[in-house]
Design a protein around this nucleic acid. Structure first.
Length: 296
DNA sequence: TCTATTTGACCTAC
DNA sequence: GTAGGTCAAATAGA
């Protein structure tokens, strides 16, 4: 599948490339909202809550990985889409990009409209105006940077102010804190914060989408299988610690602490690049959504 | 009082 | 010298 994706992506036009990114971004965004709503709906329900949290986090991560791949220079069409398309902004001059300070530091790039909700908690520590860009770049550290010595940081830069606005998020270093997924209230706060007006703008439409997805997910977790997706959930069993770090499997709350002996096995060995994860969750097909993401 | 955010200054790669 | 990344003091809010 991965090879097929590469072949396909390498031959697509700029418009198609943008469309793929747009759809992935949309999926990622919906996953974030579903995560928020599902956690609220399933709160205190033990195993279903833990399972939902795990699945949704992995789905979100799968979208992030796909977006990262699609946004990488080797995947981009001839005309790179990362430059802001703001009126009045000139085409970027041929300036040699600065090298990362340390090439050994793992970096992942994602494009999303919900940069502030990715399952982790971040603390902003800086903001910088970047040349040839219309928006400043914000710098975040993991909230557990001090307490757990987590080295993870991310940079968020708005790329366009469309609907929804798109953000380029660069994740630097892996989490070693094994940050739990945000509690529903915290997630709602983070998502609906001043830096993310998305929910305000979409309001009723997306609330409806969320409710459809949540009810379907609840159905799945409750042992009822929505059309054609009953066995897909099991495919999503995957190690929680993406770094292989032993500490990554010892979160303080939420998912890993949830009761139940059959928590998805942290040693299942599924890699980040197992795209069957995303393939197994075809929201539109499995959940009866139309082409524009709305329920039929 | 504590915590998070803002913002100017500083450091470093190019 | 310039620009990106980080630090830390100042500030705001709970």
């Amino acid at each position: 599948m991965q090879a097929q994706s590469r072949l396909a992506v390498n031959s697509v036009s700029s418009d198609e490339h943008e469309a793929v990114i747009r759809e992935l971004t949309r999926g990622h965004e919906l996953t974030a909202q579903l995560q928020e709503a599902a956690m609220r709906a399933l709160r205190g329900q033990g195993q279903p809550e833990a399972t939902a949290a795990f699945i949704l986090r992995e789905v979100s991560r799968a979208f992030t990985v796909c977006l990262s791949i699609m946004s990488s220079p080797s995947r981009a069409p001839p005309a790179p889409p990362l430059q802001p398309e703001m009126p009045g902004s000139s085409v970027a001059p041929a300036v040699a990009p600065r090298r990362n300070r340390d090439d050994s530091i793992p970096r992942k790039t994602a494009v999303t409209s919900t940069p502030h909700f990715d399952g982790y908690q971040w603390r902003k520590y800086g903001q910088k105006r970047i040349t040839n860009t219309s928006f400043p770049r914000c710098y975040y550290k993991c909230s557990y940077h001090r307490g757990r010595n987590c080295p993870a940081t991310k940079q968020v830069q708005q790329r366009s102010n469309g609907d929804p606005p798109q953000y380029v998020v660069i994740y630097v270093n892996e989490h070693t804190c094994d940050t739990p997924i945000l509690e529903p209230e915290a997630a709602a706060t983070a998502t609906a914060g001043a830096t993310n007006p998305l929910l305000d703008e979409r309001g009723a439409k997306e609330e409806h989408e969320r409710m459809v997805l949540v009810s379907t997910l609840a159905c799945v977790l409750g042992g009822q299988s929505p059309a054609g997706s009953g066995s897909d959930v099991a495919v999503l069993q995957e190690p929680q610690g993406r770094t292989g770090d032993a500490s990554a499997s010892a979160p303080s709350v939420s998912v890993a602490d949830a009761p139940g002996p059959s928590r998805p096995d942290v040693d299942a060995g599924l890699d980040v690049m197992d795209y069957e994860v995303t393939g197994a969750l075809c929201f539109r097909d499995s959940y009866g959504l139309s082409d524009d993401g709305l329920p039929f």
